[in-house]
C-alpha cells in the first residue's frame, strides 16, 4: 500500500515533465554553465545573474541583434536591473529617436528616448520586418529564452551552431545551416563574428563569449524578477519548513492520547 502510494506520486510527477517532445529533426543543445543557473532550474536558488555579462550582452544586443530583432516588452528604465545607473539609463535612452504624438497640430513627431520608453523597434510593424528579411519577420527577443525548449542552452546553441551544410542535407536558398535549429535551415545568417563588438571592460569578444553574454542578457530580459523570485522563495520555504515543524508538533500533541 505504501509502495503503491509512492509509485503513484512518483508517476504523476515524473510524467508531468513529458511536455518536452521535440520535432524529430532537432538536436538537443548541449548544456552550458550559467552563473544564474538557468531561468527554470529547481536547484539554483542562491544564484544570481552575472551582471557584467548581462551588460556586455546588452551591448551585443544593441550593436548586433537590434538591427533586426525587437525587444518590445523591455523598457530602458528596466536596465537598472542589470546594474546600469539611472544616469546611464537616461543616456542610453536618449540615443534613440522615439516617435511620439500626435501633437496639437495632429502630427507625429520624434523626440529623444526617455527611460519609460520601450526598446525602439527596428521595423515599424511586422509586415515591414518580414519584407526586409526575406519574408519572415525576425521574432521579438523579450521572451526568447523562455519561449524555447531548453531555454538558455537552446539560444546559445543557435548562436554558435552555424556550420557548412553537409552534402547529404541540402538546404533551400536564402537559408543557413544550423546544427541546432529544428530542420537545420534557419533564415537568420550567422549573427556573431570574432571581435564583432568591442567590449569596454576588455573582455575578448569571441563568438562564444558574445553568445554567452547576450544569452545572459536575454535570460534577464525574459525573467527580470528571477533573483527576487528566488530570494522570496528561499524565505517562503524556510518559513514553511518551520511552520510544518510546528504543525507537526501540534498535531502530535493533539493525537498523543489517541494513539
Amino acid at each position: 500500500m505504501r509502495r503503491l502510494r509512492s509509485l503513484i506520486v512518483a508517476g504523476l510527477l515524473g510524467l508531468a515533465g513529458t511536455n518536452g517532445a521535440l520535432a524529430a529533426e532537432s538536436v538537443v543543445p548541449p548544456h552550458q554553465e550559467w552563473a544564474h543557473g538557468g531561468v527554470n532550474s529547481f536547484l539554483s536558488m542562491f544564484k544570481t545573474f552575472d551582471y557584467a555579462a548581462a551588460q556586455r550582452g546588452f551591448q551585443v544586443y544593441k550593436e548586433v541583434c537590434s538591427a533586426c530583432h525587437s525587444m518590445d516588452l523591455v523598457a530602458y528604465r528596466n536596465l537598472t536591473g542589470i546594474g546600469f545607473t539611472e544616469e546611464q539609463v537616461k543616456a542610453i535612452a536618449a540615443q534613440y529617436e522615439i516617435q511620439d504624438g500626435p501633437n496639437d497640430q495632429g502630427e507625429m513627431f520624434t523626440r529623444p528616448g526617455l527611460p519609460a520608453d520601450h526598446f525602439k523597434k527596428p521595423f515599424p510593424n511586422k509586415q515591414a520586418a518580414a519584407a526586409a528579411n526575406g519574408g519572415k519577420a525576425p521574432p521579438d527577443l523579450s521572451l526568447m529564452v523562455k519561449a524555447r525548449e531548453h531555454f538558455e542552452d537552446y539560444v546559445y546553441a543557435i548562436l554558435t551552431g552555424y556550420e557548412e551544410a553537409p552534402a547529404d542535407h541540402p538546404i533551400p536558398d536564402g537559408t543557413h545551416y544550423n546544427k541546432y535549429f529544428p530542420g537545420h535551415a534557419i533564415a537568420m545568417p550567422a549573427p556573431l563574428f570574432e571581435d564583432g563588438v568591442t567590449y569596454a571592460d576588455g573582455t575578448k569578444a569571441t563568438i562564444a563569449q558574445q553568445a554567452h553574454d547576450v544569452v545572459t542578457f536575454l535570460a534577464w530580459a525574459a525573467e527580470p524578477h528571477l533573483v527576487d523570485r528566488r530570494s522570496t522563495g528561499v524565505k517562503v520555504i524556510l518559513f514553511l519548513v518551520v511552520f510544518a515543524g510546528i504543525m507537526y508538533a501540534a498535531k502530535r500533541r493533539v493525537w498523543a492520547d489517541v494513539h
Binding site: 536547484l43 539554483s44 522563495g233
Partner: peptide
C-alpha cells in the same frame, strides 16, 4: 512554493 519560486515554467509550455 518550490514550483512557484524555483521552476515556475517547469509544468508549462515554452510556446
Amino acid at each position: 512554493a518550490a514550483f512557484v519560486f524555483f521552476a515556475p515554467n517547469y509544468l508549462g509550455h515554452p510556446d
